[in-house]
């Protein structure tokens, strides 16, 4: 199972091991960790919630999109749910490809797509309150307030 939602802490090495292949010269990983400060505001902890069966399906979809776009790529993604403290790992994405440029690009594609289409939400807890965080994409704006059809099913 290369695409998982996990209630337990993520073992990065175990995710990497899933994409090891004799044809690969490069493996990239992205490890998303809980940052203490965002715009100067101090986070105490986060809670992640997922629509699990759909989230797994959407992670699989992202894996298939990557295999279509980058020949010879292998992909594994695990996303954590539950309460996470500062520096805890929220997500690990591992991608292996024959050549290194593809491994970087495919990995970056994966995290952007996760932030577009995978039904997972985080609630930030600060000293003075808590809030469910909406779309935090740093690179894509949705003027209509939501992803377009083309974003969802690309």
């Amino acid at each position: 199972m290369n695409f998982e939602i996990s209630k337990e802490p993520i073992n990065t090495q175990a995710v990497i091991d899933k994409v090891v292949q004799r044809e690969a010269g490069a493996i990239t990983t992205f490890i998303g960790t809980v940052r203490e400060l965002t715009h100067g505001k101090k986070t105490l902890f986060l809670v992640y919630e997922a629509y699990e069966p759909m989230a797994v399906k959407k992670l699989e979809q992202i894996g298939n999109e990557i295999k279509d776009k980058w020949a010879g790529a292998e992909v594994a993604i695990t996303h954590r749910v539950g309460k996470l403290d500062i520096t805890d790992i929220a997500v690990v994405i591992a991608v292996s490809t024959p050549h290194r440029n593809d491994a970087y690009e495919a990995n970056r594609y994966a995290i952007e797509r996760i932030k577009e289409i995978v039904p997972i939400w985080k609630k930030e807890h600060w000293e003075d309150g808590e809030e469910w965080i909406g779309n935090q994409l740093e690179t894509v704006a949705y003027p209509s307030g939501k992803p377009e059809e083309s974003d969802l099913n690309e």
Binding site: G32, Y48, A50, Y51, M54, A55, H79, A90, V91, I111, I114, K115, E116, I117, V118, P119, I120, W121, K122, W132, I133, G134, N135, Q136, K146
Partner: peptide, 10 residues
């Protein structure tokens, strides 16, 4: 049916 607010995983 599921109602899905803007996602914030990752």
């Amino acid at each position: 049916i599921a109602f899905i607010p803007p996602v914030s995983g990752g």
